[in-house]
Design a protein around this nucleic acid. Structure first.
Lengths: 345, 345
DNA sequence: CTATCTGCTTAAAACGGTTCAAGGAGAATT
DNA sequence: AATTCTCCTTGAACCGTTTTAAGCAGATAG
């Protein structure tokens, strides 16, 4: 591999001049600049990043730590992060923790060993200690889709509570008064926040309009798990006309269970998903869902941390909150009785 | 940030000793070792990666360049790469090119500027030049899902030709004699290979069993685009009983178009997808599809390149080929006439 | 008591750049 | 012709490690 010295020798100039040709071309005489650039070109010289970073104390690398890159939400997020980083000539190291705290800690170690400038992370439940020790090492942090409880860090998030209320209000306005909630484990902050949002939305309604909620906590937030749960539930009793799902895969599983039992959608039961994954639009029954701006979330997070890296002294930590949006498609409709009401009025 | 010198001073030893404590603990006297380790612990010292890499000429970073990380195939692939890298204490820089040659070249530049040790890439059509210049810079290369035409590089791939023949044979054996092919642009190697596989499978059949193929090349390999194409096609004439799709999203779009025209699945038309994305199983009509071992592909590719980095002199370039598998679900069935035949025999 | 050996520790030389004070050659001014 | 300016270029210091040859005790052997 050619070094800057080889280039200097070949071009008949000093090594400082070559460095200038690369970093501050304006200070060189045009003739010299051209000469050096030609040699660089010919030799295919690429400056050694390690050497350069060593001197500069910066390396333009950030880490992105997510629990599950297969989840379309995080895939989109990662794209946003990547694009923002690319625009700023940064580079992203992707770390997938499979939602394991242990793996997360290991990845944080690897990242600090790599001396990344910043880390974007959607942390596991109890990783504040590990995160604190990262910031102590001078690595900047930004939390994605989690609050920055007690940490010196920026955060970006989607307003999950509002998302929950959006879903509930939509069904409520369509006349649904018995609603099934298909959620995940209670210790997932998003799940808790959405439930809180739903509860709050209900409390704001006049008493006689309040729907009755049955919550089913699924072991895993997957289509299969939802399929089984709904199947079992229907076998016992069909005591609901609407389902609010923790994500779109759950919604799809639920829909399959309903159809197999001859329940028509959305005439008899309305289903609303969450995340608005690509696929929701092209499903057999195009899915009504709550869309989260995952890409924008990632983009914003990356911009935050990069601006902090570039300008540490004037940076102030901030929290950016995005609002989810209701996307109405064909899987939700007014209840029969509600439709009657509408006709009368 | 603490440096090795600060640690040395605090521990009352020379800086070489600290370095030994980190990298070759066995050469130190146990007492010294403990003393130094204690100080390292207390100060939260992390060695500077840039300095270390500069000296060692290695940095345990590889780059992964893919056209579209949102595509579940590449998402799974990326997971495989990540896991293999993590196991070898390597780290992965993710680059998403949106299938743009320009972005790809830029990313290759960024990666070589970062001095990554190796690059895993699913290259765009005409990027051999750019790739050759990367290898000239001493960066090792492995091609994913593409042949290594003329390049000094390892490659991993799925046998697309076989995948095509699997799909065709399946429909053929179910009695389908008029098959619609929904593919993408012809210059995508996968598309071409699968078509070739289909053609070859047909040529091996006795003449009277050969199905008639109609190929429709979609502008974009998306559900929407397939939906429109199939809709238009049906409006003119329903002259097929089976559809082979370039990917699962296409299959879903096609299915939607069929259902909206009151064509029942799989009774009247069978549909087979490609990729076997997570979702295929939970679709309204669970989708028959060709499954590609994307995770394993990524894992194998990462292992190849890492072993090359660790042991450059004894490494020989190789090609690993995975076989796709047919996953039969409910979207394919024998044709009515074929079922009759079966009953008779 | 001197000589050799053993086991640690140390000082110093890389690694490949960036940066900055200092130097040098012309051009412009006096 | 001497002086001052400009504009470039250069040499050297430095970034934080790893590595290797050399050094220094203390122990063992002669």
């Amino acid at each position: 591999m050619a070094s800057i010295r080889d280039v200097a020798k070949a071009a008949g100039v000093s090594l400082g001049t070559v460095s200038n040709a690369i970093n501050r071309p304006e200070v060189l005489a045009p003739r010299t600049l051209r000469k050096v650039q030609k040699v660089i070109e010919e030799m295919g010289f690429v400056p050694n990043a390690s050497a350069r970073n060593l001197r500069a104390g910066r390396n333009r690398v950030i880490g992105l730590v997510v629990p599950d890159i297969s989840n379309p939400f995080f895939t989109d997020l990662a794209r946003g992060v990547n694009d923002a980083a690319f625009a700023a000539k940064y580079v992203v190291i992707l770390c997938n923790t499979d939602a394991s705290t242990e793996k997360e800690v290991q990845y944080l170690d690897v990242l600090s060993a790599q001396n990344v400038e910043g880390i974007l992370i959607t942390p596991a439940r109890d990783s504040n200690r590990a995160l604190a020790s990262v910031t102590e090492k001078g690595i900047r942090l930004a939390l994605v889709d989690r609050p920055a409880q007690g940490l010196q860090a920026c955060s970006v998030a989607v307003n999950d509570s509002y998302g929950g209320s959006l879903a509930l209000t939509h069904l409520q306005e369509l006349g649904h008064r018995n609603i099934l909630l298909l959620t995940g484990k209670a210790d997932i902050p998003q799940v808790a926040d959405r439930s809180a949002g739903i509860a709050e939305a209900i409390s704001k309604l006049p008493e006689h309009e309040r729907p009755i909620i049955t919550e089913l906590r699924l072991e895993s937030m997957s289509a299969q798990s939802a399929y089984e749960a709904v199947k079992k539930k229907i076998d016992k009793e069909l005591d609901f006309t609407g389902i609010i799902c923790g994500n779109d895969m759950i919604a799809l599983g639920a829909i399959r269970a309903l159809r197999e039992n001859g329940i028509s959608l959305p005439e008899e039961v309305s289903v609303i998903g969450y995340d608005d994954i690509d696929f929701a639009e092209s499903a057999a029954v195009p899915l009504t869902s709550i869309s989260q701006p995952a890409y924008e979330l990632g983009y914003a997070a990356a911009e935050l941390i990069i601006s902090e890296c570039e300008n540490p002294e004037r940076h102030v930590h901030q929290r950016i909150e995005f609002q989810p949006r209701l996307i109405v498609r064909s899987s939700t409709a007014p209840t029969t009785s509600h439709r009657a009401t509408l006709r009368i009025s």
